[in-house]
Design a protein around this nucleic acid. Structure first.
Lengths: 129, 129
DNA sequence: TTGACACAATTACAAATGTAATCCTACAGT
DNA sequence: ACTGTAGGATTACATTTGTAATTGTGTCAA
């Protein structure tokens, strides 16, 4: 299954909104844009159409307007996007990315605690490399 | 300082090679491509030129050929690229990405150990959120 | 000397992307 | 009925990206 064409940045931004709204028309997506994100209504329409063409969204007609809904789960898109990034930036190795994140981004002590727990859970579990 | 235009995937691939070679002409970069990566010599030339135009590489003339060298450190590009990805995919939150990575990618027990150490080092250190 | 290469520089081009102008039409009001 | 308008569908377009065809030029073999 060759997944489907990749998402562009702008498309990803819009896809995230649809995931959140679950089911939405152009207007709703448009209004859900973060304030300050100055982008035209018609532009949002284009992104939604492309998202549908690429197979990321379902669409149905409601009266004379189109209503979009997620077709591919965020999980999936995240896996693909992150995977590609790891390939491109680190030759496919996950550890260098982990190291980068831990060292360069900020974490609260609560975050660190959570991370330890995640690691603990791994050890017991069945997911060995 | 609006960094500089972003890197495209193909450009990033080439940039990585230049980082590794430290200093290289088109031919060398071309030959350093992983076997199987079927791409034309002229295509590599184009990427190198664009990398230079965008400010990621330095270039000097050596006889009648151009020799490229890194101008921006990998660290910097990585920080920018990862940062953008976190914004796009997780609204700027690092933790969801960490969680995703820990749960979805594979780690050896050695890796896990290393990660624990990284976290330990953080706690003592001065980098609080 | 004279081509014929080997190499690298230039130029070209189609597809993807970011963004919006334009077009269509049901409806509210006169 | 007629018309301006709001909301949405279409079409358009410049830029960026992936990729390569072309073009220019020293160099060496005949």
């Amino acid at each position: 299954m060759p997944p489907r064409p990749g998402l562009s940045k702008a498309e990803l931004e819009i896809a995230r909104i649809v995931w959140e709204l679950k089911d939405a028309g152009v207007r709703q997506v448009f209004e859900a844009l973060p304030p300050g994100r100055d982008i035209d209504f018609a532009t949002v329409q284009t992104y939604l159409r492309r998202l549908e063409e690429k197979g990321y969204l379902n669409v149905r007609l409601e009266g004379r307007s189109r209503v979009y809904s997620p077709k591919v789960r965020p999980q999936t898109v995240i896996r693909e996007t992150v995977g590609e990034m790891v390939d491109l930036l680190f030759g496919g190795e996950t550890m260098p990315l982990m190291k980068h994140l831990v060292e360069e981004r900020k974490f609260s002590s609560g975050d660190i605690e959570q991370l330890r727990e995640l690691l603990d859970r791994l050890e017991g579990g069945s997911d060995e490399k």
